[in-house]
């Protein structure tokens, strides 16, 4: 098997599996770890994780495909997720989503040609008091790989995209 965890990830793996009475229970956190390491959860990654935890590949696949946070295919550097559920719907989330679709020239779940952005409409982010909200995943950010941006407007969301674009340009 060609995949391997970095030293850091291996330490994290050891810590995680120590929390449960059996290895399968560690599957969700270990899939998160593997996605952070390898970018997305490919069939190869599923095999690797299954092998580590002694879980048959079919069961790993069932789990990896059930949950929305595992990316089965590569996504853009920034995974921009716009909530349009009730509180965000009432406060302009739909308009933000429409604007970003146009600005980035992608449809829902689409990735820009330069691979910088994936745009997705998502369900309630538990930020209703500060709606509308956008979640941005940035696997390159070791501190905050998942960040929330709240109280958004079309203008602030537009500016957010520009900031992210500049960030991608500066450190690749």
């Amino acid at each position: 098997m060609s995949l391997a965890f970095s030293e850091n990830a291996q330490r994290r793996f050891d810590l995680i599996v120590g929390r449960y009475p059996n290895l399968q229970a560690a599957l969700l956190p270990v899939l998160h770890l593997a996605q952070a390491e390898f970018g997305h959860v490919s069939p190869e990654v599923m095999d690797f994780v299954g092998h580590l935890l002694g879980v048959p590949p079919i069961k790993v696949q069932q789990v990896a495909t059930f949950y929305t946070m595992y990316n089965l295919a590569p996504v853009g550097r920034f995974h921009v997720q716009v909530c349009t559920n009730i509180a965000c719907y009432l406060t302009g989330g739909k308009e933000i989503l429409c604007h970003l679709k146009q600005k980035l020239a992608v449809e829902n779940k689409g990735t820009t040609a330069d691979g910088v952005f994936t745009l997705e409409e998502v369900e309630c982010l538990a930020a209703c008091g500060t709606a509308p909200a956008i979640q941005v995943n940035d696997p390159h950010d070791p501190e905050w790989p998942i960040a929330y941006h709240e109280n958004q407007t079309v203008a602030s969301a537009d500016a957010l995209i520009e900031r992210l674009r500049a960030k991608a340009g500066s450190n690749g």
């Binding site: 369900e123 309630c124 930020a127 209703c128 500060t130």
Partner: peptide, 9 residues
């Protein structure tokens, strides 16, 4: 995750 809910966070 119940839409509208943001207290446990």
């Amino acid at each position: 995750g119940e839409p509208g809910t943001f207290k446990d966070r």
